[in-house]
Structure formats: C-alpha cells, structure tokens
C-alpha cells in the first residue's frame, strides 16, 4: 500500500519538476534573459511539439527513422547473437578473434558514415549498415560474457543425463545467457538511434527525423520545429528504452531475483 503511495508521489514530484523547468524557461524567455529573440518561447515549442504529433509529413519521417532503426537492430541481433554464441562456446577461436575485436570496436562508428555514403546509394541500406556496425559490439560482447557466466553445474547436470551439446546449448546456455543478450540489445537500441539520426543528418536524403530537421533549418521559423522534433526524438528514446526495460523485467524476473543483477 505504502509502495503505491510512494509511486504516486514520485509521479507527482516528477511532473512538478518538469512543470517548474518549463515555467522557468518560459519566464526567462519572456524576460529576454536568453539575449536576442533567437530562442523561441517555451510555450511556442510546446505548441509546436503538440502540432507535430498530428503532422503527417513529420510522422512519415519518424516512421522512416524507426523503420531503419528496427530493421538495423533486427539484422544485428540475427547475425550477432549466433556469432556471439559460437565464439563464446569455442574459446580457442574466441582468443584468436579477440585482438581483432579490440582493434575494431574503438573505431567511432559515426566515422564510417562518410564511407557508407560512398558505398551505399540507397539511404535505407546506408542507415542499416552503420547501425549494424555500431550496435553489434554491445550485443556481441554481452552474449560472449553471458555465455561465460553460465553455471557449469547446470550444464554438467544435463550432460550427465545424456543430453548432447546442442541440447545443452538450447536448454541451459541460451536461457541463462538471454538476460545478458537483452541488456546488450537495449544498449544497442540507444546507439542505433544515434546512428540513424546521424546518418540522416549527414547523408541528407528525403526521409527520417534528421532529414526533417535539415529541411526545417532552411525556413525562418525553423528553430521551433527543430526543437519540437528534438523533443520527439527524446520521447522516442524514452519510450523504446522503457519498453526494453519492461520486457526485460517481465521475461527475466528469475534472473534479477537470483543474482540481483542490475540489468
């Protein structure tokens, strides 16, 4: 009971915090504290943000970004998870490949966008390619790490009952690695959004939130729309992230209960 009261309290507090910030920004804007009238008033931005929710053109752009995001992420998961499982169960191969991973991983992913611009004439392919490169690392590393964390006793138990290596992988290793993979996918999700937007900003093209913003910047009152679009990008980030966290909590309750791992 008291927990629920606390939660309500939390929501009220959070709303108050947001409202205070908005009001302060509005007051500062009206008082001319931001210098010239370059920065639009908070109320204008809020109005534009609401407006964008019904703007078909903007919604198409959001859909385009999210399409690239989800396709890129799906491709990464489909390729990287099996690869991670393979490397994780073959320690010798892993040891060989490890230095390569260590050299490739620190390359800042966005630096590949100019190269990708030359290589991929199609904008969607381009986005998916850079998303793949950037988001494969957290998934790969988490998968390998999770596989190493599998309880050897559980594996041996199954083996002692005469199960083959594939059955062990399917029944023990994969389920106990799943929470780690999920964490990797959530981290990758955040990175993928950064890459999708960066690619749209850099490569131009006709659709996506980044493209919308570039187009808006050429109109005189464009800044209002740019900020509103940024607000929506933030909301998208919050929503996708909490969807991932919610799914993780629901699917892997046993994991957090057992290990107390902060996922």
């Amino acid at each position: 009971m008291s927990g629920r009261a606390l939660l309500r309290n939390r929501v009220v507090c959070g709303a108050l915090g947001v409202a205070t910030l908005l009001l302060l920004a509005e007051a500062a804007g009206r008082a001319g504290l931001f210098g010239q009238d370059t920065l639009p008033l908070t109320s204008t931005i809020v109005a534009r943000t609401v407006e964008l929710a019904g703007d078909e053109e903007f919604l198409t752009d959001v859909a385009a970004t999210m399409t690239a995001w989800s396709l890129g992420l799906l491709l990464t998961v489909a390729v990287t998870v099996p690869l991670g499982l393979l490397l994780g169960s073959l320690p010798k191969v892993e040891a060989t490949v490890r230095p390569l991973i260590e050299f490739l991983r620190p390359i800042p992913s966005v630096a590949l966008i100019p190269l990708a611009i030359l290589l991929f004439p199609d904008r969607l392919d381009l986005k998916i390619a850079v998303i793949f490169y950037a988001s494969c690392w957290p998934i790969l590393i988490n998968t390998m790490y999770g596989l190493r964390d599998v309880d050897p006793v559980a594996k041996e138990t199954l083996r002692s009952f005469g199960f083959g290596p594939l059955a062990v992988l399917w029944r023990v290793s994969l389920p106990s690695t799943a929470p780690f993979i999920a964490t990797g996918v959530r981290l990758a999700g955040g990175i993928a959004l950064i890459l999708a937007v960066s690619a749209e900003l850099l490569a131009g093209g006709s659709d996506g939130i980044g493209a919308y913003v570039i187009e808006a910047s050429s109109s005189p009152d464009g800044l209002e729309f740019i900020i509103a679009a940024t607000v929506w990008a933030g909301i998208l980030g919050v929503v996708t992230n909490s969807l991932f966290i919610g799914a993780e909590r629901r699917l892997f309750r046993w994991h957090t209960a057992r290990a107390g791992v902060a996922a």
């Binding site: 309290n9 915090g17 205070t20 920065l39 950064i194 960066s198 910047s217 800044l223 990008a233 909301i235």
Partner: peptide
Amino acid sequence: ARFVDPLVHFGRAIPPPMLLPLLIPL
C-alpha cells in the same frame, strides 16, 4: 532526485547529434 528524474531520463534519451541542427543557428 525525485523531482529531476523525468528530466534526466528525457535528456539522456535525446540522440545527441540531434542537438547539432539546434545549436548551429543558436
């Protein structure tokens, strides 16, 4: 923390490159 929590979550979720077109005119 309770008051600032949503703001932090929101700020963290904005893809940082989005700031560039916003800051360049400013």
